[in-house]
Computed example of a mutant assay.
Amino acid sequence: MFPSHDGLYGIGELAERAGVTVKTVRFYSDNGLLPEACRSAGGHRRYGPEALGRLRLVRSLRALGLPVREVHRVLDEEETGAGSVLEDAVAGQLRELGSQLRALRWREAGLRLVQECRPGERADRLRLIGAVSAPPDTAPLARFWRGWLPPRMPAGATAAFLEAVVPQPPEEPEPAQVLAFARLYAFVTRPCTGAERPQPAAHRSEGAGRPAVLYAGLAEAYELAGAQILRGREPSPGPELDSFVDAYASAYGSRDTLAFRRVLAGQLAADPRIDRYWELVSEVVTPPGGTPEPTPGSAHDWLFAALDAQLVARTGRGHRAGRVSASPR
């Protein structure tokens, strides 16, 4: 079908040529995406020859998921020939689609988790995974650690610390990882009693006076220890332990001596533990059957065991390396 004798399309003609319904053409017209050339004497919409190409472009943009307001901006840019609205709009849609896909993968793994468990476990698992959004939100984990950190930590040091201790949910989780994250979420959001005092001595007023120095040094020591853990090396003195002890010595304004190491080991052995958090973190970041990834908690245990082994070798006395504390552990 061709335009009428005046070179204009009627709404039905335009819809047929573009392969859409009259209702669709009317919707785009009413929203300003498809300007009319004029109205007939009977009040019917008439469109110029350029309307067919514009309608096809609008249809393609909408098929990509762009909302009407973004389509408006793209069309305006097409007319002016300036800017990069289309590229920005497509990038935004890709980000949104990625978030939707992550949510779907999380929900799929959650459904498989419920499907594969024993009937007696379903109520508990439904309760756990039902409390977590999809894709899961890590903000509660960050809040947990913000309340655990010493006061007056610089913003940059806090951000670096949170990046190290808050695990990112896997992009394509297995059911076991969904369960581990749900349990981790429950762990950090459970009510705390007044008797609980999770902060180690280094966080209190009589402890380290330079928390940013302490945590920067610990981050370096944990990274060094993590490499040794991946190699399967048993805890032993070396540059990893020296870096670990130096973090505390620098924060306390002390020298790294054997006496200081003995006092430090005693303090760390008496500090509270957050073992369960790190066990669950390891399960979240490690696919079933994979090699467990080192965490700050496992790195701290390795370093304390190395310190304990050194003290036993030099003084004959240790601090039960199998039950050490951690900062943060």
Results as ranks from 00 to 15, higher is better:
F304D: 14
A321V: 05
L111A: 02
P35A: 11
A299Q: 08
C38W: 06
N31K: 15
V324W: 01
L230M: 07
G43T: 10
S29I: 01
D271L: 12
A155K: 01
R39K: 14
L97W: 07
V245I: 00
P328Q: 11
K23N: 10
G83T: 12
Q267R: 09
R190I: 05
R329P: 05
P173I: 01
R197F: 08
R112A: 15
Q199K: 05
S133R: 10
W148A: 13
L113I: 13
A259Q: 00
R320H: 03
G322W: 08
L34G: 04
A182D: 10
V245Y: 03
H44Y: 15
A82E: 13
W302T: 11
P136D: 09
T21D: 00
L258H: 11
E279M: 02
A306H: 06
L162D: 02
A299G: 01
P150M: 07
L162P: 07
D137F: 05
T21F: 04
V284E: 02
I11T: 11
H72P: 00
L264D: 10
A63S: 15
Y28R: 14
A37W: 03
P211H: 06
L94N: 13
A41C: 03
L230C: 03
A159D: 05
P35D: 13
G290P: 12
F244G: 04
R56E: 05
Y215A: 03
S298W: 08
L113K: 07
A265P: 03
G297E: 00
E163A: 14
H72D: 08
A41M: 07
G289D: 03
